[in-house]
Amino acid sequence: MDIFKLFFDHDLRLDKPAKRNANKSPEEIEATLADFMKPTPTYSKFYITGTRLDKEQFGLNALEKATRTVEQLGKTFEHRHIHVPGTSFRSLAEALASSGIGEPMVIADEKPGVMLDNLNIDNESNIVHRKQELREILTAGGYVLYKEQAHHGFDLHLLTMENIYPALFRAFQPLVSNDFRFFSINSKRMRSERHFYFETWTLDRPPHGAEEVSANTVL
């Protein structure tokens, strides 16, 4: 049985943390206050993962329906190109096959102005140190996708300024069956590793924040 999990986290800040006022000049303090009054750009982060429960394998590509899951995800980007360093793809499956863990894929109509090499994610997938490059891509309407190491393969991170949750929901819902159970999960309510792998101990009574999607679920 496939357990497919779509984690979502909205309203994440795209700006860098402000420096403390200590040792700032009056001009710097005034500029900081002016920046504080401006709307803060935010983005959404989606984490796409799965578990093949009968074989106790963890990772999106470990699913029995891994190929179809990637195909459905790719449909949400079908009018865009997927850019990786040195080339571009129309097929998400091809882009994933050519990309390693933490290597960014930018999904956009045109090649991003920011050099993709400057956006490489560190080993802990911490994007804090890449906020400027990330902001340039996301504010231009692009999406950033990258793999994260899973126990038996990889999972996917997807970052967007646009809230594309409805499109992702519609893409994955048709896969729901007795052998493919789809859970939509609020990341803010699922902070522990025990919660993350809830399917291993409480599949039919998931913790608060995880909602199972049926073929009839309506947004």
Rank of each mutant, 00 (worst) to 15 (best):
G209L: 00
S177H: 03
S184D: 08
R20V: 13
F154C: 04
E64H: 10
N61I: 15
A66Y: 12
A62N: 02
N120S: 12
S99Y: 07
L6I: 11
I107G: 02
R90K: 13
N186C: 11
R170I: 10
S99N: 02
H151M: 05
I127H: 12
T200F: 06
L119K: 08
L53H: 11
N21F: 02
R189L: 13
E212G: 03
G50Q: 10
D54A: 09
E136Y: 11
L119T: 04
L33C: 07
P41F: 05
H195F: 03
T139G: 05
G113K: 12
G59F: 01
K188S: 09
H195L: 07
A31Y: 04
E212W: 03
N216D: 13
S184G: 06
T139I: 15
E148R: 06
G86E: 00
R205L: 01
S88H: 12
T160N: 03
D179H: 08
R181S: 07
A34P: 04
R189T: 14
T160I: 02
R80I: 15
K111C: 13
T67P: 06
E211H: 09
N178E: 14
Y143I: 01
S98G: 04
D122G: 01
T217Y: 05
G100M: 01
T42Q: 12
R20Q: 04
E162I: 02
Y146Q: 01
V128N: 15
V213Y: 06
V144Q: 07
D15C: 00
N21K: 14
P206R: 02
Y165T: 11
L145H: 02
P207I: 12
P174Q: 07
A62H: 01
F154H: 10
R130S: 05
L219H: 05
E199P: 10
L6S: 10
A167T: 12
G59N: 09
L96T: 09
G113D: 15
H152K: 10
R194K: 14
S177Y: 01
T49Q: 09
G100H: 11
L33V: 07
E94L: 07
E193Q: 14
S187E: 13
P207E: 00
F46R: 00
E94I: 09
R90A: 10
T217Q: 02
D109S: 00
R52G: 08
Y197K: 08
L14F: 02
R191F: 11
D15Y: 08
D54I: 12
L156I: 07
V144E: 09
L116N: 06
F198A: 01
L203Q: 11
R68K: 14
T200E: 01
M115C: 11
P85G: 04
A95V: 12
